[in-house]
Simulated scan of single mutants.
Amino acid sequence: MGSEEKMMDSSAILGVAVGLVLALTGAGGAILAVPLLLFVLDLSVARAGPIALLAVGMSAAVGAALGLRGGIVRCRAAVLMAASGMMMSPIGLWAARWLPNEPLVLVFACVLAWVSWRMLLQGRACAGVHPDRCTPCTSMAPPCQLDPASRRFVWTSACARALMASGAGAGFLSGLLGVGGGFVIVPALRRATDAPMQMIVATSLAVITLVSMAGVAASALAGRMDWPVGLPFAAGAVVGMLGGRRIASRLSGPRLQQGFAVVAGLTALGMMAKVLLASRGWQA
């Protein structure tokens, strides 16, 4: 078996892991995709980013389609967030193309460390609590309120601004780091809305699908998509998403979140160590 075939096989296996974590956490698999491609396949952030976006977008599309069938995706909110994200994604892609790889890896590691810390704290706070009842501590009413009768958001200017700002941040990080932005979207929807967690995750997957596909299209048009590695990785992610949804309901959400937070934190430390050792002339 040639080195190219081995890389394709490894890519598919890594994709399964990404899709599985994305299905179980609603946001985690996306931000683990790039570190896996960096460590296992030894790709640069600029090369790994579009591959990760392809896998994340395809696997999120599966989850979003199932959410649409169940009627729990808030479509107008998803489209608004995705539209603002699509405007910022090309700026992130441009920045990723021109920034050196080592500083970009450090930025990614810092973002990953922050996400792992937030998820660890949230997992502890929500231990033993039903996910839909575990909400951020705040005395202020969220700007986006669900209508009790229709189960749709009551649209106000404050609601629209909150969703657009969240989508823009997710879009920029999507282009810069090759992530779907779910780690931004899910907490933002928890703060900005009173929607139940199941609805938040489904809506987040819809936004991730739209934003990721926009980034994939931009990368493909610019000739920066590595299809031989990207397609097996994406196919594996879809398989992982489907498999993960079958076992997600049997696992404890907060404990799963804490476990992911530990893995993400260790990954962030490993990325930082790799860059620092490389800068001193060592091989990590």
Rank of each mutant, 00 (worst) to 15 (best):
G2V: 10
E4C: 09
E5T: 15
E5K: 10
M7K: 04
M8K: 13
S11N: 02
A12V: 09
I13E: 00
L14H: 09
L14P: 00
V16S: 02
V16D: 02
A17K: 01
V18H: 03
G19V: 15
L24M: 13
G28H: 07
A30V: 06
A33R: 01
A33C: 04
A33S: 03
P35C: 00
D42T: 12
G49A: 12
G49S: 08
A61R: 02
L66V: 01
G71C: 10
A77F: 04
L80A: 11
S84E: 05
M87Y: 08
A96T: 02
W98C: 05
W98E: 03
L99W: 00
P100L: 06
V105P: 10
C110P: 15
V111P: 06
S116P: 13
W117Q: 06
W117M: 08
L121Y: 07
G123F: 12
V129D: 11
T135Q: 07
T135V: 12
P136L: 10
P136A: 10
C137Y: 01
C144F: 11
Q145G: 13
L146S: 15
R152D: 05
C159W: 06
A165N: 07
G167I: 14
A168P: 13
A168C: 14
S174N: 11
G175L: 10
L176G: 09
L177R: 05
V179E: 01
G181T: 07
V184G: 05
A188E: 13
L189Q: 14
T193A: 13
T193Q: 08
D194Y: 03
D194F: 03
A195R: 12
P196I: 12
P196C: 13
M197P: 00
M199H: 04
V201Y: 00
A202E: 02
T203A: 03
T203G: 03
V211H: 07
L221K: 11
G244M: 01
R246T: 10
R250C: 11
R250W: 15
L251M: 14
S252L: 07
F260Y: 14
M272I: 09
L276R: 05
A278T: 12
S279P: 06
W282G: 02
A284S: 06
